[in-house]
Design a protein around this nucleic acid. Structure first.
Lengths: 140, 140
DNA sequence: GCCAAGAGAGTGCATATACACGTAAATGCC
DNA sequence: GGCATTTACGTGTATATGCACTCTCTTGGC
């Protein structure tokens, strides 16, 4: 009377993780010459686009845990690519991209574009559109 | 003459990672009472379905780096949920699920099913089908 | 003004992830 | 049979990820 595990072969979590790992490898490979990981690129690009943003809000935009961003932010701050200060509310840690950070992310933009195009070619336009929606639908 | 980074707002890598993180949280939450993470569940289920499998081959099926599986396998082996031995080829480390491992993954199956259904409801049938294809298309 | 409740953020811990590098066993070629 | 090559795998290092817990600061009610 052992359980039938065959349904696990179509595990959506495994599928999503495999997809993310495969895509991440493509981006990281392209970004490597610029000394950036795609996770770091995302944080820098987000800050460049949105301007100074408090931790929690930035974590929410990136869809990751607040405490995860704390560690990533420390790394980026050590590299002098971001700085942080406090606002009126002394609890808030407001993150800001530095000039060096902006130069770094801009220099890597071509590599990011190449990776983006590569994945787009492999998956097709409709698939990439769907992928864009998933995260939003899951956090709604 | 600063670069226009606005295209980074639709980064496919960020989208895939956000999706995977959100889905992982759902599965991990359901599996928690059973003392399993979804990554561990995947390894155990795969071994239960496929029988004894060498490291590299298992890593390939899971779409993760071989060295990542080394660490995960060590954890599962410490918990006595899997064992490993060598075959004719002394280089091969062949993984095998134990009875305790099988009981564990079977006891968690209901939780996995609940998480799977939950994500399926949120994304819809066509979307989940698409998600299943992505990983395969990217590793082809 | 005082205090309880809530909001924003950091730490300890465990696990996940992969690249560069190293090691040992099998294999192919002569 | 001996050695270069290939194959399967492990380690060192760095980063990513999130839960439980803790701390500090703000806010509301009195």
């Amino acid at each position: 009377m052992s359980t039938d595990l065959s349904a696990c072969g179509s595990c959506l979590c495994l599928a999503s993780r495999r997809t993310a790992r495969a895509i991440t490898r493509i981006y990281d490979h392209k970004l490597r010459p610029h000394g950036l990981r795609v996770t770091q690129f995302s944080v820098l690009a987000m800050l460049a686009l949105r301007g100074p943003t408090p931790m929690g809000q930035l974590a929410s935009f990136l869809g990751l845990d607040r405490t995860t961003l704390t560690r990533s932010a420390d790394i980026l701050e050590n590299k002098r690519w971001i700085t942080s200060d406090t606002a009126e509310d002394a609890r808030e840690r407001r993150m800001r991209i530095t000039d060096a950070g902006r130069r770094r992310v801009e220099s890597a933009f071509g590599a990011w574009r190449a990776a983006q195009d590569s994945v787009q070619r492999k998956l097709g336009a409709s698939a990439t559109g769907a992928l864009q929606n998933f995260a939003n639908e899951l956090t709604a």
